[in-house]
Design a protein around this nucleic acid. Structure first.
Length: 858
RNA sequence: GCCCGGGUGGCGGAAUGGUAGACGCUGGGGACUUAAAAUCCCCUGGCUGCAAGGCCAUGUGGGUUCGAGCCCCACCCCGGGCACCA
């Protein structure tokens, strides 16, 4: 059946076919089908209150075209969608309105779902996931427990932004020019207890795994840079007081050790206090206080001018026992390496600058070339000034010198080879309400010991923290007690103490906890009977938005499984996505975090492969009409709903793809959509007449002209190839070319029109379905397969050869495909346009490119 | 500063080292129509020429090549990422 409307009434046609697909569950992915599988994944959206942005349908249309084409080609396609629905905006809305964030979130999801369905995407809606659904986040919590049990989660004091006026913790994005974005209040750094995931334990494997994935090079490079592997050595400098141990530094240039003339510790370095002599105490303390008030950002951004203070202490350089002054300066960061460096101003620009500023000595240990203008010399060259009684590096290049000195240091037990990473552990907690609660309670040491005796799911090393002299131990909820759901709260406002709003829910927070079952009753009740009940306080932090998005691609495989994140069969059958499409803004964090979790799950034997995303593609951003980023304040935002109302979803889909290469950043042009809309109407007219009946030019036994027939087969080939290569813009222009040719044919073979519709179906599925049924009477184009081209029809008997004289186009000639170079020379000489450029001068050389051109050099 | 990506008509863009500007938009002219919309046809990079044609032209300047938008070198501009990472 079809709508049978007389003209191209997309407002009738599109809803009709959308409900047809829904009723017939046309896009259901079949678990374990014998067909080859194809899993094409979109980055699922955060359902914001402002509805779908035009950027969403861009990537979603691309994957939908691929999904539909793959289905036509006989694949069992998994093409799912869901909602990344925890997050700050919903919480802020809740604070403002007092309504539960879940209510707002569900409203937004309804809007998003309606908008996405209106675009005709072929998602398997039976597999929809929602990260805020307790059946989903039960498994997010479960994965966290696996991390916890395996020593990959711990708590630590970490500096965060605190706004005293708002009495809350703010994220970096909520701070504008050192003030809170809301209310413009001052903010300060404050140390708060945080959950941290040990992603650094996977640094090497996260780096290594990049070799095996088909990703954009730029994204791989970004992740590489983020992980920031560097090879070098850890070197120990002895201190005067042996009880302080050694001052440990990391360096990538151990070959320059003889040039170390001072050392620098980060202001937060634990040895600063002990190494500061009384005479320097005041200055050092003042410097540290100043540094503490700056964020990492300010320290790098604003403090371009070096500064530092001397501690009064010295350390001994292991290569020559020279006394080296120890300074404190904020150009050394506690978070990298050991938080202390050996400074070699002769070979390091930062150290050079600092040494000049404070008139510290400079020793060159690499010989610069004679024309070197001065300053730090960081290039390769022969070592100089680098020998002691036992070892000499002099004359060696950097690489050999490094190897030699490291062996010497290792023999002397003064240092070791060391690989260091820029990557830091992942701060995994937020002081927020609207996130997954941690399935953790805090208990006393003695209760923890008792738990350890009865539970097998505790980490080898207990996770604990000390506060006001009391040490608390982290006890996980047993699997069976999951999910731990968010309690209803009276207020979504922050607690005011730096904890989340959950800290005010005393009945939820302070509990009697059953260590075996995970059951809980409020602590105000009597202690229930039985040995397993202990006094506990729940964790009040919640997980960040990344948590739910770290593994959603696995849940799609088996979304209703109540016993596992997905069954082993589903994980094996569907494997990982064959293609993942999403914005480049997630190039580092989301993709790195998800890879980390996947590798952990791989190590635990949960998933069968080490990398989650084999092939990745970033769609480009669609800019406003004015060529700038779309934003409400600029008033250049394009709303998909408006476009669908005016031109239909098929036109929008087609135009989004026609705009330019998928990966390019490109401006929206409101006039441009007219062109593709006209094209669709043209397709309609070629199929149906004004009465809505089949166009009388379409005949079962009609024949196309040879040229158009060839074009048809070329188009079938090109559209197929272009879809696989994600070159949708050129696929569409090829279809336009074909249609322009078909329009000029006196009669149209029914089979040719069927091919056209099948090629168009992935791009403009509603129109294709409507015309297909009206032309053919068959149920749905989705069962019609993909057209095949005849390779024999792609070769032609005649070809057009370009004639060049001295590399310039002078004419062309159409000849048989078997023409020889000698014949072409004769044809060229006889060619009226060409002959005059040769005009009797002898031909020195001819270059013949088969089927292309002949170039005569005279 | 470092690392990427990109500069092609009035606009979006197309072009295995082989006729630059496909396809679409815009603009101009025409047909159909009482008129309009829709549709169809022609033209639409610049300079020059009555015309046939010629010359110039893919950010700029060099180079390789019979031939360069495409490869190499230098520079300019735009976009993205990182940024005292030892």
């Amino acid at each position: 059946m079809a709508t049978n409307c007389k003209d191209y009434d997309f407002l009738k046609i599109e809803p009709y076919w959308q409900s047809f697909w829904e009723k017939t569950k046309a896009f259901r992915a079949v678990d374990g089908s014998a067909k080859p599988k194809y899993y094409v994944l979109d980055m699922f959206p955060y359902p914001s209150g402002s509805g779908l942005h035009i950027g969403h349908p861009e990537g979603y249309t691309a994957t939908d075209i691929l999904a539909r084409c793959k289905r036509a080609r006989g694949f069992n396609v998994l093409h799912p969608i869901g909602w990344d629905a925890f997050g700050l905006p919903a919480e802020q809305h809740a604070v403002k309105t007092g309504t539960h964030p879940a209510a707002n979130t569900q409203n937004n999801i309804v809007t998003f779902r309606r908008q996405i369905k209106a675009l005709g995407f072929s998602y398997d809606w039976d597999r929809e996931v929602d990260t805020t659904d307790l059946k989903y986040f039960r498994w997010t919590q479960w994965i966290f427990l696996q991390l916890f049990q395996n020593g990959l989660a711990y708590v630590d004091e970490r500096p965060v932004w605190w706004c005293p006026e708002l009495r809350t913790v703010l994220s970096n994005e909520e701070i504008v020019d050192g003030k809170s974005e809301v209310g413009d209040y001052p903010v300060e750094r404050r140390n708060l207890r945080q959950w941290v995931l040990r992603i650094t334990a996977y640094a090497e494997r996260l780096l290594d795994g990049l070799k095996d994935v088909d990703w954009p090079d730029s994204t791989k490079r970004m992740q590489e840079a983020w992980i920031g592997r560097s090879e070098g050595a850890e070197v120990l400098f002895k201190l005067k007081k042996p009880e302080l141990g050694d001052l440990k530094v990391f360096t990538t240039r151990p070959d320059t050790l003889f040039g170390c003339t001072y050392m620098v510790m980060a202001p937060e370095h634990p040895l600063v206090d002990a190494l500061t002599l009384p005479a320097h105490r005041g200055e050092v303390d003042a410097y540290r206080r100043k540094a503490a008030g700056k964020s990492d950002l300010e320290r790098t951004d604003l403090a371009k001018d070096k500064s530092g203070v001397f501690t009064g202490s010295y350390a001994l350089n292991p290569v020559n026992d020279k006394r080296v002054p120890v300074w404190v300066a904020d150009y050394v960061l506690m978070g990298y390496g050991t938080g202390a460096i050996m400074a070699v101003p002769g070979q390091d620009e930062r150290d050079w600058e600092f040494a000049k500023l404070y008139q510290l000595p400079i020793i060159r240990t690499v010989q610069p070339p004679p024309d070197f203008p001065g300053g730090a010399f960081v290039e390769d060259g022969p070592a100089i000034n680098s020998r002691n009684a036992e070892i000499s590096l002099n004359g060696l290049r950097i690489a050999e010198a490094k190897t030699k000195i490291i062996s010497w240091l290792e023999a002397k037990k003064s240092g070791t080879r060391r690989i260091n990473y820029k990557l830091r552990d992942w701060l995994f907690s937020r002081q927020r309400y609207w996130g997954e609660p941690f399935p953790i309670v805090w208990v006393s040491e003695s209760d923890y010991r008792r738990a350890a005796a009865m539970r097998k799911d505790l980490p080898a090393q207990p996770v604990k923290f000390t506060e006001n002299g009391l040490t608390h131990f982290a006890l996980p909820l047993p699997d069976a007690a999951l999910p731990l759901v968010l309690p209803e709260v009276n207020s979504y406002l922050p607690s005011g103490t730096g904890e989340s709003p959950l800290a005010n829910e005393t009945a939820w927070l302070e509990i009697w906890f059953n260590m075996e079952t995970g059951d809980a009753v409020p602590a105000t009740n009597y202690r229930p009977a039985g040995d397993s009940w202990v006094r506990a306080r729940r964790e009040t932090n919640t997980m960040p938005q990344w948590a739910g998005s770290c593994w959603y691609y696995l849940r799609y495989l088996d979304p209703r499984n109540a016993g596992a994140i997905a069954s082993p069969e589903a994980l094996k059958y569907w494997d990982v996505p064959d293609l993942y499409v999403g914005g480049a803004e997630h190039a580092v964090l989301h993709l790195l975090y998800a890879r980390f979790w996947h590798k952990v799950l791989f190590d635990l034997g949960v998933v069968p492969q080490a990398e989650p995303f084999k092939k990745l593609f970033h769609q480009g951003i669609i800019l406003g009409e004015d060529g700038t980023k779309m934003s409400k304040s600029r008033g250049n935002v394009v709303n998909p709903d408006d476009i669908i109302r005016a031109y239909g979803a098929d036109s929008l889909r087609l135009y989004l793809m026609f705009l330019g290469p998928l990966e390019a950043m490109k401006p929206w042009n409101p006039k441009g959509i007219e062109g593709v809309h006209r094209f669709l109407r043209k397709v309609w007219r070629e199929c149906l007449n004004e009465e809505g009946a089949v166009n009388s030019r379409i005949l079962s036994d009609a024949r196309l002209s040879a040229a158009t027939d060839k074009l048809l087969h070329e188009t079938i080939k090109k559209v197929g190839d272009d879809i696989e290569g994600l070159h949708f813009n050129t696929a569409i222009s090829q279809m336009m070319i074909l249609l322009n040719a078909l329009q000029k044919e006196p009669t149209l073979p029914r089979a040719a029109m069927r091919d056209v519709l099948r090629l168009l179906a992935p791009f403009a599925p509603h129109l294709a379905e409507e015309l297909w049924t009206r032309l053919d009477g068959a149920e749905s184009i989705m069962t019609a397969g993909w057209p095949e081209f005849d390779p024999a029809k792609l070769v032609t008997s005649t070809i057009t050869i370009v004639i060049q004289v001295n590399g310039k186009y002078r004419g062309d000639v159409t000849v048989g495909a078997d023409v020889t170079a000698a014949e072409l020379v004769q044809l060229a000489l006889a060619h009226p346009k060409v002959a005059r450029f040769i005009a009797g001068t002898p031909i020195k050389r001819t270059i013949y490119v088969k089927n292309r051109l002949i170039n005569l050099l005279v």
